[in-house]
């Protein structure tokens, strides 16, 4: 509760008329039906236009020229699935995703974009090569967790949604292949601690709740570049 209060204070301290409105905080949570409809209505993305926007709107400044990420602080976007990138931008815009000060920055930026803009940059990133690949790693401490899950903790295998090589795709999951390990750690913790909750019906968070810190670290390394 205290953490949320702090976030709300932080957000309202960010400035601008936009943050004075409480409406954003109660934006509609996702349902499978709404997600399907929104993605079906996603505009056709123009990767060429997307590349221009990615320069003009400072995306390149943090995420790198091709979206490959310039710092352990920011995720790689190169090769990311377009519907996922598009959805993340919507979530930032609507305040559904705002886990920390870095996310606050994305909120401001997403609000400068139209849905066409979002689809265009998503198309640009999707056209870039993935930063890595995460094939079967027998003997790795979390290989079993990734490939078989853990029935005791009701954790389905990561690969069943995030793909055999971590490339994502099932149930609108993102690619994890080659992602910044620090970012993956932060993300899993954010889901686990309910600081991030833009997933549909806690579809991701539920698998993070019972993960240990060591597992989170190992999973991040499993998928890392």
């Amino acid at each position: 509760m205290k953490k949320h209060l702090l976030l709300i204070l932080l957000l309202s301290a960010l400035g601008g008329q936009a943050f004075a409105e409480p409406a954003r905080e109660t934006a509609q949570a996702w349902t499978p039906v709404r997600l399907h409809a929104v993605l079906a209505a996603m505009p056709q993305g123009d990767a060429v236009r997307g590349e221009k926007l990615h320069g003009q709107l400072f995306c390149a400044s943090c995420h790198g020229e091709r979206g490959e990420s310039l710092s352990r602080h920011w995720p790689a976007l190169s090769g990311q699935r377009a519907p996922y990138t598009y959805k993340m931008l919507l979530d930032y815009r609507d305040g559904l995703r705002h886990e920390d000060a870095r996310a606050e920055m994305m909120v401001v930026l997403a609000r400068m974009m139209t849905e066409q803009d979002m689809a265009d940059v998503a198309a640009f990133y999707a056209a870039q090569p993935l930063p890595g690949s995460a094939p079967l790693k027998k003997g790795h401490p979390v290989n079993d967790l990734v490939r078989r899950g853990d029935p005791q903790r009701l954790i389905t295998p990561c690969a069943s949604c995030h793909g055999v090589e971590g490339q994502g795709g099932r149930n609108e999951t993102p690619s994890l292949a080659g992602q910044r390990p620090e970012y993956l750690v932060r993300t899993l913790r954010a889901f686990r601690d309910n600081v991030r909750h833009n997933d549909v019906h806690q579809g991701m968070a539920q698998f993070a709740w019972d993960l240990t810190d060591e597992e989170i670290q190992a999973l991040a390394e499993y998928y890392a570049r």
Binding site: L14, G15, Q56, F58, A101, E104, M105, V108, L109, M112
Partner: peptide, 18 residues
């Protein structure tokens, strides 16, 4: 400067306070 630079400058100003 572009609108984006101007808007981000304001965002940076807030971050920089902290």
């Amino acid at each position: 400067a572009s609108r984006a630079q101007i808007r981000i400058g304001a965002l940076y100003q807030q971050n920089w306070m902290r």
